Simulated scan of single mutants.
Amino acid sequence: MLYIHGDKYVDMVALDDYPKTPGFDNYPALLKLGKPVTDGEVGPHQQSYGKFDELAVLETYKGKAPYFLQWHSWTNAKVAIVDNLHAKEMMNDAAAITLDRIR
């Protein structure tokens, strides 16, 4: 569901997305709102636990979203970056700016 509160209250628009494969299907519609667009929460759908391609996540958001947030894992849910495919490659990619690189 998309809530519109008005320009004077909104600085950024975001959605939460838990797909089988990384995607940003709502990006064109959100971009039309004239605000920076991001993904408030992203992570794999249950069918993709442990098989979510983190490099594909990075490619999905590169040049579009200023950041994305991915949950950590919990019992029987492999949703964290480190629990999925290509985690090290994604975190070491020049396009991934992590906290240690901005200090």
Score class of each variant (00 low, 15 high):
Pro28Thr: 14
Lys51Pro: 00
Pro22Lys: 13
Val82Phe: 11
Pro19Lys: 11
Asp16His: 14
Leu55Phe: 01
Lys35Val: 05
Tyr27Asn: 03
Trp71Cys: 04
Tyr61Pro: 00
Leu55Lys: 12
Val10Met: 12
Pro66Gln: 11
Gly23Met: 09
Gly6Asn: 01
Glu41Ala: 14
Lys8Arg: 07
Phe52Asp: 01
Tyr9Arg: 11
Val10Ala: 10
Asp7Ser: 12
Gly43Arg: 12
Gly23His: 08
Phe24Gln: 03
Leu55Thr: 11
Ala65Leu: 07
Leu31Asn: 09
Leu30Lys: 04
Thr75Arg: 11
Glu59Gln: 11
Gly34Asp: 05
His45Leu: 12
Gly43Trp: 03
Lys64Thr: 05
Thr75Pro: 00
Leu55Gly: 02
Gly34Met: 15
Val37Thr: 03
Lys35His: 04
Ala56Asp: 09
Ile81Asn: 01
Ser48Pro: 00
Lys62Leu: 07
Leu33Lys: 04
Val10Asp: 01
Asp16Met: 12
Ala29Phe: 04
Lys64Arg: 13
Phe68Ile: 14
Val10Cys: 09
Ile4Trp: 01
Ser48Ile: 07
Leu33Ile: 10
Val13Tyr: 00
Lys64Leu: 08
Asp53Thr: 04
Lys51Cys: 02
Tyr3Thr: 10
Asp25Glu: 08
Tyr9Asp: 09
Val10Trp: 00
Ala80Cys: 06
Asn84Val: 05
Leu58Gly: 01
Pro66Lys: 09
Ala80Ile: 05
Val10Thr: 13
Asn26Ala: 10
Lys64Phe: 04
Tyr49Lys: 13
Leu33Trp: 00
Ser48Arg: 10
Phe52Lys: 06
Ala29Met: 11
Ser48Asp: 02
Thr21Gln: 09
Asp17Thr: 10
Thr38Asp: 00
Pro36Asp: 06
Asn84Pro: 00
Ala77Met: 15
Val13His: 01
Pro36Trp: 05
His45Val: 05
Pro36Phe: 06
Asn84Ser: 07
His5Gln: 12
Tyr18Ile: 13
His72Cys: 13
Asp17Glu: 07
Val57Trp: 03
Ala56Asn: 06
Tyr67Met: 12
Gln46Ile: 12
Trp71Ile: 08
Val79Pro: 00
Tyr3Lys: 09
His5Asp: 08
Lys64Gln: 08
Val57Arg: 08
Gly23Cys: 08
Gly40Leu: 13
Tyr61Val: 15
Val37Gly: 01
Lys8Val: 06
Ser48Trp: 01
Thr75Tyr: 11
Glu41Thr: 06
Ala14Gln: 06
Ala80Arg: 11
Pro22Gln: 10
Lys8Phe: 02
Glu41Gln: 14
Pro66Ile: 10
Trp71Ala: 15
Lys62Asn: 04
Pro28Asn: 11
Asn84His: 05
Pro28Glu: 11
Leu58Cys: 01
Leu55Asn: 10
Gly50Leu: 09
Asp25Val: 07
Thr21Asp: 03
Gly23Leu: 13
Gln47Glu: 15
Glu41Asn: 06
Leu30Ala: 10
Lys8Cys: 07
Phe68Trp: 11
Leu15Arg: 14
Leu55His: 03
Tyr49Arg: 14
Ala29Ile: 14
Tyr61Leu: 13
Asp39Phe: 08
Asp39Val: 15
Pro44Gly: 07
Tyr3Asn: 11
Gly6His: 01
Leu69Ile: 15
Val82Leu: 10
Val57Lys: 06
Met12Ile: 15
Pro36Leu: 14
Thr38Met: 05
Thr75Val: 09
Asp17Asn: 13
Asp53Val: 02
Thr38Arg: 03
Tyr27Arg: 06
Leu31Gly: 01
Thr38Ser: 05
Tyr9His: 08
Val13Leu: 11
Pro22Val: 13
